[in-house]
Design a protein around this nucleic acid. Structure first.
Length: 309
DNA sequence: CTATTCACCTGGGTGC
DNA sequence: TGCACCCAGGTGAATA
């Protein structure tokens, strides 16, 4: 699942292989890929033709490619999206949702997305209003997304204040892209493990030291994952798929149910939270007082309702 | 305004 | 072998 490090790897790949090139043809193979673009598939393709990719930018899990001073191609990879650059004559895989060829006749760009949660959209961009030194444009549809912890516009003090003001659990807060962007289920669990915090911990009870420990953990986890993803930068293929190799980075908690915690050896537990799995160490990450232990099973009614759909 | 719930998707895996 | 179902989960619209 592409979270900040994977999306940044894609951004760097696009910067290297696509920026400076001009679109010869744009083809939408599945209209769902541009469902958020009011111009529709034909309008989108028409508007993209002849445009030049000027810059590759990112905030959190969103990517955008400036086309001029006010317009950009916005991309979100969703669960399974990939942006692949390669030989324009290679066969078209069944999950290619959109394709761009370039006037130089070189490698093409393909938006591939099995589960179709991702999308592309031509947008207008306005100057970011989140930092005096920030001069770049941010697309209007993602103006509500908070800066991510690796960008200059990120304000740690403001994050701490807003985090502890919320009335919610700490993991839910980490996944809230309007509070801090770029973190998904995997790195949320990894950061909480590293900071020795349980996912259900009420944000209002977090001590100052715990907040800074958590933010440090978030930055470390993202930075390390980014480093291991960086090895694929030289490849022509800009790959962000779970199977692509660097995604098997070492994880300490996520997906390791029953395996020993690397810190203390206690078997990692899995619990259901927000209808998804949360992995944590029962010894290092003690549940807050009064929190209900939850098992991975769904409630009977929910399972039945889901099954009948 | 804030917090919560749900719809949107598909292919691999599992159990009967 | 075939079928039904579960599961992965980020986003934004709808709802409370």
């Amino acid at each position: 699942m592409p979270e900040l490090p994977e999306v940044e790897t894609v951004r760097a790949g696009i910067e290297r292989h696509v920026v400076g090139r001009t679109v010869a043809t744009a083809t939408v193979l599945n209209p769902r890929a541009v469902r958020r673009d009011p111009a529709g598939p034909e309008g989108f393709a028409d508007a993209m033709t002849g445009r030049t990719f000027l810059r590759a930018e990112r905030r959190g899990k969103y990517l955008w490619f400036a086309l001029d001073d006010t317009e950009a191609l916005l991309a979100h990879l969703g669960m399974s999206g990939q942006l692949l650059v390669g030989d324009p004559d290679r066969p078209l895989s069944p999950h290619v949702r959109a394709r761009f060829t370039f006037t130089d006749g070189g490698p093409d760009l393909r938006f591939t997305d099995q589960r179709t949660f991702g999308h592309l959209m031509l947008v207008t961009a306005a100057p970011a209003a989140d930092g005096a030194e920030v001069r770049r444009l941010v697309p209007a549809p993602i103006a509500h997304i908070a800066p991510d912890p690796l960008e200059a516009a990120f304000d740690a003090k403001d994050f701490a204040a807003r985090l502890t003001r919320k009335r919610t659990e700490v993991k839910r807060a980490l996944l809230d892209q309007s509070l801090i962007s770029g973190i998904g289920n995997i790195y949320a669990d990894e950061a909480l493990w590293r900071a020795k915090l349980h996912w259900a911990r009420p944000t209002q009870t977090l001590k100052r030291g715990e907040v800074s420990r958590l933010l440090d953990a978030v930055r470390e986890v993202l930075t390390e994952a980014l480093k291991s993803g960086g090895t694929s930068f030289d490849a022509l293929y800009v790959n962000v798929n779970g199977e692509s190799g660097y995604f098997d980075r070492s994880l300490n908690a996520y997906g390791r149910e029953g395996e020993p915690c690397p810190r203390c050896g206690t078997p990692v537990r899995r619990e259901t939270f927000m209808n998804r799995s949360s992995y944590s160490c029962p010894h290092c990450q003690r549940p807050p007082r009064g929190s209900t232990e939850r098992t991975p099973q769904r409630v009977a009614g929910a399972a039945q309702a889901a099954g009948s759909r």
